[in-house]
Design a protein around this nucleic acid. Structure first.
Lengths: 129, 129
DNA sequence: TACAGTAGGTACTAAAAAGTACCTGTAAAA
DNA sequence: TTTTACAGGTACTTTTTAGTACCTACTGTA
């Protein structure tokens, strides 16, 4: 049995939600159930390999559920577990802070683009203009 | 001028506070001003090189202040900028979630150790027994 | 005099993370 | 009949991140 030693709690949190793809995957899943292909399309640039790999790790850590339908072609749904939902507020805060930071940097003249704002993508307000 | 493109805000946040050492450094600095040596002692295992490197990046991103006293031997103090303070709640949440997660895993029989709990280390309650 | 403490820097190496390319197998659509 | 979509897997390579070792320069202490 291998032992894990942490100095402070944030190390464990980052082990679980850190990395290039996990926070992105989780920020999508906090809106609800998604199929593999939906996730792949929602996260441009992620490869099938990285997507599967990260999903497996999140599953192993008890953060997400993997529901496999025994049918052909295959259908697999991913969603946050109840425990994973306890990360929702943190994930939301991380998204919002980043959106504001990007806005701030833009104002400073940095050439930086944000494709999907959290709330905009969730609620496009089609008639607002 | 190089361009940065993000799909969702959390990518930018993680660019700034992610990695092995940055969240740890920030979780220490949110308690107040610290000198280089204090940080090095507070974060066992970090090397001088990584500490300096991460501090420079955080400084470049406007998260921390670096105050150099022109004296010998040198004295340098690090602290969160006002902007950096806007991360305090997130950092606190990340620490607390991790502490609870470690507790949860311990209960499940995992061999896992947390050396410094956020509140305990900040307020040792010397007469409480 | 030799060493510890102060706060770094730099070149090189090791390890971890991510990416590329190519594979499975079935069903439905072009 | 070939292609696409579905949800993967695996071997290998590249990139990124982190670590090691050794350097500066000055002061105070043993």
């Amino acid at each position: 049995m291998k032992q894990a030693i942490y100095n402070i709690g944030v190390e464990d949190t980052m082990r679980i939600i850190g990395g290039k793809w996990k926070p992105i995957i989780l920020c999508h899943l906090k809106h609800g159930i998604m199929r593999t292909g939906e996730l792949r399309r929602a996260i441009p640039n992620i490869t099938q390999k990285m997507l599967t790999q990260q999903l497996r790790e999140l599953e192993d850590d008890g953060i997400i559920n993997r529901k496999v339908y025994s049918q052909i072609p295959p259908k697999v749904e991913y969603s946050l577990t109840d425990y994973g939902e306890s990360l929702n507020k943190i994930l939301e805060d991380l998204c919002v802070w980043g959106e504001k930071d990007i806005e701030r940097r833009k104002q400073k003249g940095e050439n930086i683009i944000l494709l999907n704002k959290e709330d905009v993508s969730a609620d496009p307000l089609p008639y607002a203009d």
